Amino acid sequence: MRALCMTQTPSHTIRILFVCLGNICRSPMAEGVLRHLAAEQSLKLEIDSAGTADYHIGEPPDERAQQACSGRGVDITGLRGRQVSPEDFHRFDYILAMDTENLRRLRAMQPAGAPARLSLFMDYAPGPQKGMAVPDPYYGDSQDFDEVLNMLELAAQGLIKQVCQA
């Protein structure tokens, strides 16, 4: 893959948290993709994922998510679901939601004075996908997981470019 940090790499560790509803599909896939891209470029990023709901705490990512990621050389088998905590809003620089409902929940949860920047992950994607919600593939098939992975890869590349310019 081509280098995404054309200008410079960040001088400090940037902390990024991806958030979806249950933390077994979209957000662990996003975590895996960004970890993979950051490792390829030796970027100092701390990357995690969580859910706004407590449905899947301690569970591994959905098998279809694992398979889609594995097909692109991204291993998410060791990840486990967890719920967003108030401390996350102080620990992470960026908290990136997969859709507007989860972004709304995050804004309602954010403690006063917490510095984390909240936005949609797709705000970092180029072109017409910028600002879109990442659809939940949970009730779909393997093709839905592949399409979500395509979206996540685009946004991850855009996020890395932004982080390198900051």
Rank of each mutant, 00 (worst) to 15 (best):
G81L: 07
L103D: 00
I24V: 15
F89K: 11
V33T: 08
S27A: 06
A97P: 03
L118R: 11
A39Q: 14
G71P: 02
A114R: 06
G32T: 11
L106G: 02
E59L: 14
S27H: 02
P126W: 05
A112K: 10
Q129M: 14
M29W: 02
L21R: 12
D88S: 12
A133Q: 12
I95Q: 04
L120K: 11
T52I: 15
E101P: 00
A53M: 15
T100V: 10
L79N: 11
P128I: 08
L96Q: 01
Q41D: 04
G81A: 06
R91L: 07
K130Q: 15
I57Y: 03
I47K: 00
F89D: 03
R107Y: 01
T100P: 00
G78R: 14
R26Q: 10
A39G: 09
K130Y: 00
L118G: 07
G73V: 02
C69A: 12
I76Q: 01
P128K: 11
L21N: 09
V84Y: 02
Q67W: 01
N23Y: 07
G51H: 08
E63Y: 05
S42D: 13
A108R: 10
T77G: 12
L118Q: 06
N102F: 09
M122T: 04
G78D: 04
E31K: 13
G113N: 03
I24W: 02
A116N: 01
D88C: 14
V134Y: 02
F89T: 13
R72C: 04
R91I: 13
A114D: 03
Q83D: 05
G32I: 07
V134Q: 03
V33L: 00
Q41P: 05
S49D: 06
G58Q: 07
D136P: 07
R104L: 10
A108N: 10
R105C: 10
G22D: 10
C69T: 09
G127W: 02
D136Y: 01
G81Y: 05
S49F: 03
D75R: 01
E31F: 07
A65R: 00
V134W: 01
Q110F: 05
H36Y: 06
F92N: 06
R82H: 14
A68I: 04
L37V: 05
L96F: 01
I76Y: 02
S49G: 12
E101I: 09
L21G: 14
A108Y: 04
P128V: 11
N102D: 08
A112F: 04
G127D: 04
K130P: 00
R26K: 13
A133G: 10
P61E: 13
F18R: 08
M109Y: 06
E87W: 04
G113D: 07
R82I: 07
V84H: 04
M132T: 11
M98S: 14
A65D: 05
P60K: 14
D93F: 06
A68S: 13
D48R: 15
A39Y: 01
V33G: 02
T77V: 13
Y55K: 08
L45M: 05
R26Y: 06
L106M: 05
R82W: 02
R26V: 13
G22T: 09
R26C: 02
M109W: 03
D54N: 14
F89A: 12
P135S: 10
D93T: 13
N23M: 08
A50W: 05
A39V: 05
A108T: 10
A39W: 03
L96D: 06
Q129S: 11
